[in-house]
Nucleic acid binder design. Sequence first.
DNA 1: CTTGAACACATACGCATTGTATGTCAACCG
DNA 2: CGGTTGACATACAATGCGTATGTGTTCAAG
Lengths: 198, 198
Amino acid sequence: MAAGQRARMMEETRAKLIRAARRAFAEQGYAAASMDELTAAAGLTRGALYHNFGDKKGLLRAVIEQLDAEMVAKARIAREREDTPWLGFLAECIAYIELALEPEIQRVVLLDGPAVLGDPSQWPGQNACLQETTRAIEALIASGTVRPVDAEAAARLVNGAALNAALWVAAAEDPPAVLASAVDAFRCLVSGLLAARD
Amino acid sequence: MAAGQRARMMEETRAKLIRAARRAFAEQGYAAASMDELTAAAGLTRGALYHNFGDKKGLLRAVIEQLDAEMVAKARIAREREDTPWLGFLAECIAYIELALEPEIQRVVLLDGPAVLGDPSQWPGQNACLQETTRAIEALIASGTVRPVDAEAAARLVNGAALNAALWVAAAEDPPAVLASAVDAFRCLVSGLLAARD
DNA sequence: CTTGAACACATACGCATTGTATGTCAACCG
DNA sequence: CGGTTGACATACAATGCGTATGTGTTCAAG
């Protein structure tokens, strides 16, 4: 077996573990997920886990990193579909709200992640979503579209609002209807950032 | 011993357990807190715990209920110090941000609470903070101060923004400075709810 | 006054789960 | 070809939760 093959196999076991972990963490929550079951479902044992990720938290970190990257990619697409920077920003935020409706993202990234790993802004990964939003706001401020505020602060506020809205929508009886009013209120709220109201 | 005494003693043991739990959960987090140590610190055993609260989650519920009540009380005071309903609302929200800086509230109510018990809006307790904010917004809408949006949605968004701001501030190197810019951005953001910008 | 039922809590046990320590087998290297 | 390293499996020890059971005290009925 060639040297490259070993590295590729290692990546494959990591991928298998992460895949199994995404399912387990999403369905049962981080605390209730058993590493024995999880690794068995991936056709491995806990040995592979501790070898590759150090501990249970390490696996969670890897899972979140992957989910975070997927979220950024989808939000970016939503943003780039719009014509103006401001509309792009709005679309990106609303995309976050809708993304957070997926149980996988909600349970793993929004609920268990902060509880187990601490504040998202301190993650090593480190929360590409927030960075993306911050940069978008910085650009909007530079162009005079948005009032001059601390971009990172605004990003944290907006992201927090979006995530909380998603939690609410997901737990509602009629998610589509609630989503509509959440998005409506969200548009209203973020218009406060605008230099000149539309 | 009189009949009333027994009930009072029972309340006292509940109070002792909740007091110990507040410390343990705040300092070590819910998952890492040992029920054996916790109850021993209160001068009791796990027997008392399971008799009074059912299980570990039950104790967490009780702790959160108490913290939630304290938060509402403090926020209400901040609101009533202001002259107009809108300024009162602002003061209430900012009070939430500052309250969330306390490790006890942050760790227990904002991080572990949602992760263990699920979305706050579904709590039986049931998140008096949110109800308070919702009612305030309803009043502001009725008086024409705030644009007509779904009050609950707006409350969730605003609360989410505030809580996230607090997480960010608490983890920052220079909390006072970051708090200032967070509050600044927050004022800017919520002005979007106003019917007529000030 | 005695007896027994209810209650608040303590003790004892079983089960599950995590992290580590050790073992194994194949791949590389001198 | 023997030794070492690396990736993973297995075995072990420790801890913690929930429950089942025990104990002493209070109240009520006979």
